[in-house]
Structures are given as C-alpha cells and as structure tokens.
Simulated assay, not measured.
Amino acid sequence: MTSADVAREAGVSRATVSYVLNDSPRHRIPETTRRRVWEAAARLGYAPSAAARSLRRGRSDIVLGLLPDWPIEHVLGRLVQQLTDAFAEHALTFLVHSSAHPVRPLREVWKALTPAAVLALDEFPEAEVEAMRAAGVEVVMAVHGAEGGPHRQPLVVEEPIGAAQARYLVTGHDRIGYAYPDLPRLGVLARPRLDGVRKVYAGLGLAEPDVRTVASGPDGALDAVRGWLTATPAVTGVCAFNDEIALAVLVALRTLGRRAPRDLAVIGVDDIPAAALAQPPLTTLVRDTGVIARNLVRRVVDGLDGGRIPADPVEDLLRVVVRASA
C-alpha cells in the first residue's frame, strides 16, 4: 500500500495524505478530512515509511538509549518508560539497547540504526563518541559520566541521595553504617552516594560510616549486620544503597532476633513496591524520575534543534518517605 492508495480511498490528494499522516503544522486540514484519511489508512493497513520520513527530515526519529550492565529492576524500568513517553511527545522513538551480554559490538548497533541521538546511562569511551559524531549522530549524552570523559560532571548526580539519607539519620545516630552493593558495576552510583553520607557526617565532626558490603537476598546481610551490632561503639543506623539492600538488612535483623529501628534504624533508596510491605515498613528516599526524564529529553531535543546543551546536572527532586524502619 502507498499514500496514493490512501488518497484514492479517502478521496483526497496525496499531498493532503502526507500533511495528515505527518501531522504537518504548516497546513490547516479540516478535522473531518483528517479523520477520513486516518480511517482510510487504517482500512488499508498503511503506515508511513520511517525511511522516507528520515530522508525528508534529514535525520531519523530514533533516540538510542544505552543501558549499562545493571539489574533492570523497578526504578530503571520506570525511568525507561518515562523517557519513552517524554520522547514520544516530541515525535521521537526511544529505542533501548542493553550492554549486558552483548551479542554484537555497540558500534554495529548504532551504525545499523543511524539514530538522531544517543542517550547512555553510563559513560562510554571518548573514541566511541567521536565515531558517532563523525557518522552524523547529532547529540551524544551520558547520564552518569558526561561526554568528554570522567572529569565532566554527570547529568544526574547521586551524591545528594546519600547526603539526604545521612541528614535524616544524623539526629540520634552518631555512628552509622553504609550497606554497599556487592556488584562492582554499580559503583558509578554507589560511590557518590557513599561520598554524600561521608560528607554530612564529616561536616558535623562525627565518625566515618562503617561501610560493609551487602548482597541482596535472604542471607546477604547477615555478616554485615552482626558486624554493625557488635562494633565498638555500636552502629545504630544504616544507610542502604537501595531498597533491595535495605530489605536484606531488615531480613538479617529478624533472623538474628533483632528489629528495626529499636536495634538498628534502616533507610533505603527508591521506594520500590516491596518497601511498604516490609516488616517493619521501610523508610526510604525517593527521587522524581519523571522530572529527570523530562529534563533529559528536553536537553536532547534542544540539541537536535541546534541549541546548546547545558553541562550542569538536571533537576532532581528528593523526598523521604517516612515509615517505621527509621
């Protein structure tokens, strides 16, 4: 099926079909005509050619999203959906590729797709950025390690998360622990969060956090919790890297016959659905990923329109969800 078939079916010109299906803002088409064209296209099973649309615009409508080898869980999945929705509002398609166990090199992926922009959650080699730009990719952005290498500030900053956790616990807890994830690839998130905790306590002249590695799972936190409870002086509160790690700490406490917050106050990050169902319900820090997604998309769109992309971090709204664990 072609646009000419749709034009005959709807009783309009091919130009009108083009204006309607491409939602051209420069041509005023009566609503009844628009509806007739869309109904004709639906009856015939016609869809505009993405390749033709790209040729007309001079670029594709694809934004390639590169996911690092991180666990794809509730929060990351939510962010991907919000990015997808925000890009769709600008007639852009967000196509996600995960680097976990890649079956083909990254360079082959973006060359095959010829995206208008690339948005990566983690940083990638500068040589890869240069190759993308040389191939015509207009915008290249990395969220947790901005384009240009490790000395550029990330677009989404993690340190305030740890700082907010520490500020919440600091009243009544002079000695705290930090539950660090056991997956090295999460270090790009965990290290700055831990730095945020350290800076708050150092600024108040309090002891360095007792950092222990915790694996998610029923028995992942037993050794860490035993260590915190028997430390001298004892640790009385714990900032966890995320809610999964915090839930492991709560399970370990119950296994040892202890309870939060009486024996150890616990605060997580992300407010996953299980946080409210924990025993006791988990106090946690939540960020507005919808605001982050819209801000990132705005920068990509501005870059595609020839504007300057700011180097400063995007807005990140944080709040504590207070429950019974801390």
Rank of each mutant, 00 (worst) to 15 (best):
G205F: 13
P233V: 13
L204V: 14
D219Q: 01
E128Y: 06
R152D: 13
P280Y: 01
V266L: 10
D302R: 11
P160A: 04
G203P: 14
A202P: 10
Q81P: 04
V103W: 04
Y46G: 02
R78L: 12
P192N: 10
W38C: 08
R175K: 12
R226W: 04
D223H: 06
V269S: 11
R43P: 07
L55S: 09
L183Y: 01
M132G: 07
E126L: 11
V17W: 00
G203H: 14
A248C: 04
A246K: 09
L76M: 14
S54I: 07
R294F: 04
R35M: 08
A246S: 06
L119V: 09
E126N: 12
T284R: 13
V266T: 09
V6Q: 03
L21E: 00
N22S: 11
L229F: 10
D23L: 10
A240Y: 02
D85H: 15
A131F: 04
L256N: 03
V225R: 01
L253W: 07
L79D: 02
L296S: 06
V80Q: 08
A231S: 14
I29G: 04
L253G: 06
V109D: 09
I62A: 14
A274W: 07
I161R: 15
W70S: 07
T16M: 03
V157D: 00
P48F: 11
V286Q: 13
R185A: 15
L189T: 11
V301P: 02
R298E: 13
V156H: 00
I62E: 09
E108P: 03
A120T: 05
V20W: 00
R299C: 08
